[in-house]
Nucleic acid binder design. Structure first.
Length: 578
RNA sequence: CGGGGCGUGGCGCAGCCUGGUAGCGCACCUGACUGGGGGUCAGGAGGCCGCCGGUUCGAAUCCGGCCGCCCCGACCA
């Protein structure tokens, strides 16, 4: 048992000023973590116990699908990252340094390279495949802006797993196993995950999913259909674009629109709806200026644009870059521009007689028709999905939901295997690249998501599976009371429960408030009162009600309540993995 | 990287404008009373006022530079 009088950590009576999110505030205030620098935290005993519980749940689910736990280094030779191409492609979030010999090293931000290297060494033949390895390891990512306590940090522990298979079909089977294992793991932690399709990004994979905890504290925006059948990160979400009939194409006309520089202003001035206008937005890829044309009622999604152009980075163009290209913000037009890469959203196809800029200050063109009046180098879906839009296939309404990304899965395919020459000998005698998958869960972020999901004004309300202790014994008094609280704690441990014993000399109010703050699922109070009545007071953190249970049966009763709560979190048997 | 805010004891803050013994609440220590939802009284301990430089007889306070932290945005396997 852990005595609170000896616990390394302390609760705070005042909210730390820096914390705005509930999870950040409560984890600091209840003494789970202590910040060391921006996005860098020490885990105190309470926090570390939670982390280890979460790890154990995930470990069990990884083992259940045949994963084998390993431990890969954080410090890695840069050479490996040179070969995968990421040493140069990744950017400053990858921490680089030299050892005493001047050799380049990196602090791992993820472990695809090392995993691939291990796979290459191990799987010389198809007979060794499939294989899955995983580990819990520190990652360092020099994020431009850490935020929200444990939600977005620079150093953190991740469970990352890597699957090695002979071909895409086998990868698909492994991938399905992971989707199942992840869902089970998160449910056991008290979170019903929302699984969405996502952007593979730097991972270079062919398909990717994210597991989200829906909460207002989330940094990501998810597009979810009413039935839940469709769910995607807004970065890749697609939806129907309502069509509007503006009649058969008419000849272009130039009209004076003095001072009308925004879509709203121009549309109102000319008496047309915004969906009858053409919006011009300019981006800079680092190499060239991009003229983006999209229907006036829609917004550009930069992730989609970046993928369509197949460039690593993109940002809004600066005024000087526009000037250099001879473009006039507010009156720019794709009609008659040249020397600029033109990207058209597919919303322009079939949208007739639009109002566009005239490339002359104070003038617009009416009756612009694509592709009659201008050509695009790229045409595709680059529009932001809006709440109320409808799914492509089933015409269901879509909503936007904030979510915390607590896990992700990538089908890497042969990308890293080819870069690092990780090949196996197939049954037919051919050497083929190992087909890989990569699967991550951020442990600290998961803990933070759980707190976001489970708390009230008084503090954290841990699901039994994640709590730092199973039972919080509050001892109100000394002498006989203390002796009985001690005995009770031992009885609880004897039935397999972990105990936090508040043996401090503080008053009842202080102890109860701290118990609520720390959020252990079950509270038992021992006092003169309970001693005389030969009972103890029992209170689940989830309920405001206190009940008396006979002292003699206390340990058994709590054991039972705990087992029940745990069972409620354990998913029913799911389809067995292959 | 842009915008905003803030660095004074473990936490929350005042003092700074108008330079002159560093203060309040909580937490902490000692004692007494109290004893089931953040008690009362008395007495204590604890601070390079983020750092460096300048102005001045004298700087937490004025000036310059730097560093750090938080929030918003950009960004983000």
């Amino acid at each position: 048992m852990q005595r609170m009088s000896r616990l390394f950590g302390r609760t705070l009576r005042d909210d730390p000023a820096e914390a705005t999110l509930a999870s950040h505030r409560l984890l600091l205030r209840a003494g789970y973590v202590r910040p060391l620098g921006a996005g860098i935290y020490s885990m105190l005993p309470l926090g570390w116990r939670v982390q280890r519980r979460l790890e154990q749940i995930i470990r069990e689910e990884m083992d259940a699908i045949g994963g084998q736990e390993v431990h890969m280094p954080v410090v890695q030779p840069a050479d490996l990252w040179e070969r995968s191409g990421r040493f140069h492609s990744v950017g400053p979030e990858l921490a680089r340094f030299e050892d005493r010999w001047g050799r380049d090293l990196v602090l791992a931000m993820t472990h695809e390279e090392v995993a691939t290297d291990l796979g290459k060494w191990f799987a010389s033949s198809y007979r060794q495949l499939p294989a899955v390895i995983y580990h819990f390891q520190t990652k360092f990512r020099d994020e431009p802006r850490p935020r929200g306590g444990l939600l977005r940090v620079r150093e953190f522990t991740m469970k990352d797993a890597y699957s090695f298979d002979t071909d895409p079909e086998a990868l698909e089977a492994a991938y399905q196993n992971f989707l199942t294992a992840y869902t089970r793991a998160f449910r056991r932690c008290g979170i019903e995950p929302t699984v969405v399709e996502s952007d593979a990004g730097d991972m270079q994979g062919s398909a990717a999913h994210e597991f989200h905890c829906l909460t207002d504290a989330g940094e990501d925006t998810l597009v979810v259909s009413a039935s839940g059948a469709y769910a995607a990160n807004q970065d890749i979400a697609a939806a129907r674009k309502p069509a509007f009939d503006h009649g058969p194409p008419r000849p272009i006309q130039k009209v004076a629109t003095p001072g009308q520089e925004t879509i709203q202003a121009v549309a109102a001035f000319l008496g047309v709806p915004t969906h009858q206008t053409l919006k011009a937005v300019f981006y800079w890829t680092g190499q060239q200026l991009v003229f983006v044309a999209i229907r006036g009622d829609l917004e550009v999604n930069e992730s989609k644009l970046r993928r369509l152009l197949d460039v690593p980075e993109i940002r809004l163009a600066a005024d000087q870059e526009l000037d250099a290209a001879g473009l006039v913000a507010g009156y720019a037009s794709p009609v008659g521009v040249d020397g600029v890469l033109v990207v058209a959203d597919d919303s322009l196809q079939g949208a007739t007689n639009l109002v566009a800029g005239a490339n002359t200050p104070g003038y617009h063109l009416t009756n612009v028709n694509f592709p009659r009046d201008f050509q695009a180098d790229h045409v595709g879906d680059i529009a932001q999905v809006r709440a109320g839009d409808r799914t492509l296939d089933t015409d269901e309404p879509l909503t936007l939901r904030p979510g915390i990304e607590i896990g992700n899965t990538f089908k890497l395919g042969a990308y890293y295997s080819e870069k690092l020459d990780a090949r196996y000998l197939a049954a037919d005698g051919q050497r083929r690249p190992i087909v890989m998958g990569s699967y991550g869960i951020g442990i600290g972020r998961l803990a933070a998501a759980i707190v976001e999901r489970y708390h009230d004004d008084a503090g954290i309300i841990w699901p039994v599976s994640a709590a730092p202790f199973d039972v919080h014994v509050v001892q109100l008094g000394s002498g006989d009371v203390a002796a009985d609280a001690e005995r009770l704690s031992q009885e609880l441990e004897a039935v397999g429960l972990s105990v936090l014993l508040d043996d401090r000399a503080d008053r009842a109010g202080v102890k109860f408030n701290d118990a609520d703050l720390i959020g252990v699922p079950f509270r038992l109070t021992v006092s003169k009162r309970t001693l005389n009545a030969r009972n103890v007071e029992f209170k689940p953190r989830t309920s405001p009600d206190r009940t008396s249970i006979p002292r003699a049966q206390a340990a058994q009763a709590v054991h039972q309540a705990h087992a029940q709560a745990l069972a409620a979190l354990t998913p029913a048997a799911m389809p067995a993995a292959h």
